[in-house]
Design a protein around this nucleic acid. Sequence first.
DNA 1: CTCAGCCTTCTTTTT
DNA 2: GAAGGCTGAG
Length: 660
Amino acid sequence: MKKYYLRREPSGFKLNYEKELNQEQYTVVMHPGGPMLVLAGAGTGKTRTVTYRVARLLETGTRPENILLLTFTNKAAQEMMRRVEFLIGRNVQGLRGGTFHHIGNMLLRRHYILVGYKGGFSILDREDSKDLFDICLTGIKKKDTLLPKGSVLSDMHSLSKNKGISIEEIIPFRFPHFSQVIEEIKQTVTLYERKKQTLNLMDFDDLLTNWKRLLAENENIREYYSAKFMHLLVDEYQDTNKLQAEIVDLLANTNRNLMAVGDDAQSIYSFRGADFENILKFPEKYRDVTIFSLTTNYRSTPDILHLANASIIQNVQQFPKELHSVKNSGNMPSLVPLRDVFQQADFVGQRILDFNADGMTLNEIAVLYRSHYQSMELQMELQRRGVPFEVRSGLKFFEQAHIKDILSFLRVVVNPYDELSWKRIARLVPGIGNITAAKLWDAISRSESPLDAIFEMGRLVPKKAVDGFNLFLDLLKVLNEGGHENESLQPAAAVDHLLSHGYEDYLYSHYPNAAERIEDIEQMRRFATKYTSLEIFISDMSLQSASGDESDEGEGDDRECVILSTVHQAKGLEWNTVFIIGLNDGKFPSVRSLKTDSEEEERRLFYVAVTRAKDELYLCYPITSEEWQGLGFLRPSRFVKELPENTYEEIVVEDGDEVP
DNA sequence: CTCAGCCTTCTTTTT
DNA sequence: GAAGGCTGAG
């Protein structure tokens, strides 16, 4: 169906910028162009400003395809585009927005030849990258050498790529333990790089490095895209890394209409190479920059903001700033010592029910924590009390074994030289383990046409596995032929076929929670119906950040529920009432980050958590613990202890007369 | 030599 | 609850 829109005259937008924005926001939105740095504190209407800015650009005649919006999550991008459309009252065709990885993926699928790749390359997620490193290690590792494991190597390599620091420089600095084996590590990395290229695989970092190479090494490409994207808007600039900043610089090359939005106080991704020097040094890099500050907070009560300000002020490295609230004073934030994690769960559960009884919807309540495992007791407690909740942490949807299994089948069809996927799916056949899978791969990798050759490999398989292997071949046959002939096999049909021709049985025989897993795959199938290309479907799945949930039009699944989330995933969101649990020294801040000298980053994380709350804030910490090592007493978090006493009110919790 | 199943260990944060 | 290591069965 084709839609026609009547072109409106510029005034047709009817946006009253002066009325709908405050003075600070208004100046940003109306600014003519050039490099802009917008320092936007928490809750100061950052999204609003960005979306109005985009609307304004469109209104003054910029075409949608000449605007690029780079965000931190796909969700943020979608949200912003949705709001732009709402503002101007119609669909905006051609407006580009997404994460760096997403846009990189999109461009590289168009220009893969220029970076030495073949079409249909697969994307390695964290675990794949780790597995591939382990494979590379087997060739290099000698008996007594103390080489790091694949997972460590993967981290090391990723950090080096994202920070633009070589391996030999980064090891003494971040991984001094391995200073003796730098040569071996370098060999392994080289092998890894080569393998990715021959197997037609890109890891997450390659989506950035190859994107940068594409722009840096090809003048015509650089000129084309930097001319095309007349206006660049980068959200969460404080969490970009060196590589991403370089890409932005290359893209801004021609027009220099670059608007970077961020808040140095909310930089929480340095473990991933984010460098908030990017934001601090932005003015040096762009001398003609105009700097804006948004300091009026619309979200939180003055009481909550007071506490947040008192916390962040203890950081040395920052642009000092103070947010002021426009709301009326409310309740003091509560500090709640609890006996142990069970009492903590009990307290939070009961408080939630109380709020709910007073008429607050559950959607306005969130519980935040530093690490996923801290939510376990609470999950059990909420279950027990019948409080619906949604967990937004832990294993991502697409990282779960059953999802990856399905994807691996699809991946070998698109990229027949995907070693990891071949090995993965081969091992699903009963009777085939690592050894046989490796033999199969060995034969596959030598063959001209793996998808044909695999059918001749029956003799490599042990007798007891033959039946299973034949079923496996049948499956592949359907997937493959459907794909080749006339592209009749749509992603959704492929998923469906896998499920109904064996994988369902596999799940039932291997997992007690097979039904849930099947439900997940069903959801994936539904999601797949939006795609006509396997290749695009697979890469989108790999880059999908949201936990697979709420991919819109999920049939009425927006039942009321409490959100449980890590602080990292809560960035950019807000709730009426926020509980922060597990505020103990060693947990939040975590011991590991204290060792690596990132206390300030942990404090920023605490700041992010606190500033999610609109009206009610609870800071909870258990006093004792029955955990394995440090049995006995826990100390309250330093972030709590350093708070001035006039910023909170302490609550004492006693066991009541509740009958179990 | 291969595989599967049971055991222990250990939980940062994520595109 | 998951992932890796060890052991015993085939």
